[in-house]
Amino acid sequence: MGCFHSKKARKTPGYEDPTVLAAETPFTVSEVESLYELFKKLSSSIFDDGLIHKEEFQLALFRNRNWRNLFADRLFYLFDVKRNGVIDFGEFVRSLGVFHPNAPVADKIAFAFRLYDLRETGYIEREELREMVLALLHESDLILANDIIETIVDETFSQANTKDNGKIDQEEWKEFVLKNPSLIKNMTLPHLMDINLAFPSFV
């Protein structure tokens, strides 16, 4: 009676068919299966419930579950598509797909826009840019005089906001990134090219 080796086969609550996820992302089926190995590690590092909580995300990024960071918060928020406070496997794979070296540049540009559109107004506003610069200075312990910060924000804004209406829309953002491609450098993770080697799945 009931001598099952079910532990290995048991999937997490948000598990989705790798063939479906592979069809929707730049990953192959075996890469999705390898990502599942990574996902299992991340999602059981604090709470063993098969979902990535914000503390687990922070622990993976900073080796500290309590280390708060505006940009990590934004990434977690965007990965959490269902807005239920956790990242399930499907959300994890689809979001990481944007960071794949073969993902469309347009997707990377759009994702970066949403990261910076802190209040989700559909625009990056000057105050949001200023807030992000201040957050970075706080994070890095750099000290810049207020007038220098204002100059940097004003100058950046004037270059990106070609319509000169005080807010950067998606079209302006796209033009700005195409002129400054290094802005989306962190939207590509070379690690995703050899995910099979780093996290071999047991297929």
């Binding site: 990024l61 940009f71 934004r74 910076y116 840019l129 992000m132 100058e155 400054n180 995910i195």
Partner: peptide
């Protein structure tokens, strides 16, 4: 030289560096 605030943020914030997901194992 033009100092790009977005570049400053994207290149310097550790919060943007998802490579740690693969390295801190």
């Amino acid at each position: 030289k033009f100092f790009n605030a977005f570049e400053f943020i994207s290149s310097m914030s550790s919060g943007f560096d998802l490579s740690s997901l693969f390295e801190n194992k």
